[in-house]
Simulated scan of single mutants.
Amino acid sequence: MTHNTPLSLRPLHHLAVGRRRLMTAAQLRAHGVSAAQTGEQCRPGGPWQQLLPNVVLLHQGPPTSEERLHAVLLYAARERTVAVNGGGNGGAAAGVPVGVTASVPVQPGPEETPPVPAYAEAMITGLAALTLHGFAAAPPLPSLDVIDVLVPRLRRLRTTGCARIVRTTALPTSVRVTGVPVAPVARALADAVAELADAGAVRRLLTEAVRGGHCEPASVVRELNRARLLSRPHVVDAVDSLVAEGRALAEQRLYRMVREHGLPEPVWNVDLRLPGGPGLGAVDAFWPEHSVALELDTRAHRQREDDALWAEYARKREHLERLGITVVHLTPRRLRDCPEHQATVVRTALMAAGDREPAAYVVALPR
């Protein structure tokens, strides 16, 4: 017996039941539908249509946005081989003919939870993923001609129809949104930006990513750098806006942390210098009575620039600490995720001031 041998004479309309009326050719074979029968059903004017290679839509008319998403995933997902041997009622309960071995893409089903993650080695990325993540600046799903799907680099797939294949050497951990595996925001942004030439659209997406709290600038820029997109002028301009937006949000969180957790009010955004001497560098907050300075690490540029900035941070910190000034270093992500803990770090530094040798006198000038 082969996969193409019909196993049932039941009418085929029973398959087109449920919210997503999609099946792969392998799944149809497992239900006893031969390749010839599938071809007949998908003929012009027939009740079915082939949406993508080996993916059949079990109704006529345009597919819904949900059906397009799942069709792309069915096309791109790695298939697993399952043996249906008729032991117990397992095969019959799932509607799979007894005694058939079929290659079936892993996908969610109403009857049972699959033993491996649904849609193995495939996830939605790019603009479609951003829409699913709730981005207002991303277009609605029905307006997208193609849907990007992320797969491992060595998968033998090609872009076709509404499925655009995006390859990666390291597949990230997907996020489930309405039952669909979706790439994390930073990765989806990079894949979307790779296809966009509109500077305004790129800027709006990057700004919303930070302003909407989806991710931090550093993670976005890291993905853009990995995708080698930081050589494009319109992307660089958008990144500058992104960094500025990220710093503004981090400063707002810092102000809120100080006030909500009862810390003494510092002087904000000052340049420190020795009286009549050279400048010591800028800090985001300074408590003169305690000789404690605070810096926000909002670096989000390319690696080479990061190295130079980090070296500057380190030199400034060493110089200030030699003068007896404690430097507290906070990141925007920690301020966002655990402000209470960061407030404790600052409070501990302020309380320890009385146990230290008096610091050198420095002048704090507004910047």
Rank of each mutant, 00 (worst) to 15 (best):
A128C: 07
P62R: 11
E121I: 05
T131R: 12
A120I: 01
V106A: 10
L58N: 07
P62F: 01
G46H: 04
A118G: 00
V96L: 07
H59Q: 15
R68I: 00
E40N: 07
I124H: 11
T131I: 03
R43H: 09
G126S: 06
G86R: 13
R43T: 10
P63L: 03
E112I: 10
V82T: 13
Q50R: 14
P110V: 08
R80E: 14
T125S: 15
A120M: 11
V56A: 13
G86A: 13
P114I: 14
E79M: 03
S65Y: 02
P97D: 11
R43Q: 07
P108S: 00
R43G: 05
V96D: 12
P44F: 01
L69T: 14
A120F: 00
A83F: 08
G46P: 00
P63A: 13
R78I: 05
Q107I: 03
E66A: 06
A122F: 06
A129F: 04
F135G: 02
Q60P: 00
S65T: 03
P105H: 14
E66H: 09
V84N: 15
G87Y: 15
G99S: 14
W48E: 01
P114S: 11
N54M: 12
E121L: 08
H133L: 05
H70P: 03
V55I: 02
R43E: 07
L51N: 03
P105D: 12
P62C: 03
I124C: 13
E121R: 05
G91K: 04
A118H: 05
G91Y: 05
A77D: 08
H70D: 14
V82S: 13
V98A: 07
G109L: 11
T125Y: 07
T131S: 08
N89L: 15
Q107A: 15
G109N: 10
T64Q: 13
V72G: 04
P62D: 11
G95A: 12
H70G: 02
L69K: 04
V104N: 13
P105F: 07
T101D: 10
E66D: 11
L51V: 04
A83I: 11
E67D: 03
E66F: 09
R68Y: 11
V72N: 09
Y119P: 03
P110S: 10
A77F: 05
A92H: 12
C42M: 07
G86V: 06
W48V: 00
G46M: 10
V106K: 02
A120P: 00
A128K: 06
L127Y: 00
Q41P: 02
P115F: 09
V84Y: 15
V104H: 08
G134D: 13
Q41V: 01
P53I: 07
G91A: 15
P47I: 09
C42S: 10
A83M: 10
E66M: 05
V55Y: 02
Y119T: 09
A118W: 06
S103E: 12
F135S: 06
Q41H: 01
Q60F: 01
V116G: 01
Q49E: 13
A129K: 03
G99Q: 13
T131C: 06
A94N: 01
T131D: 08
G88F: 06
G39P: 10
G88M: 11
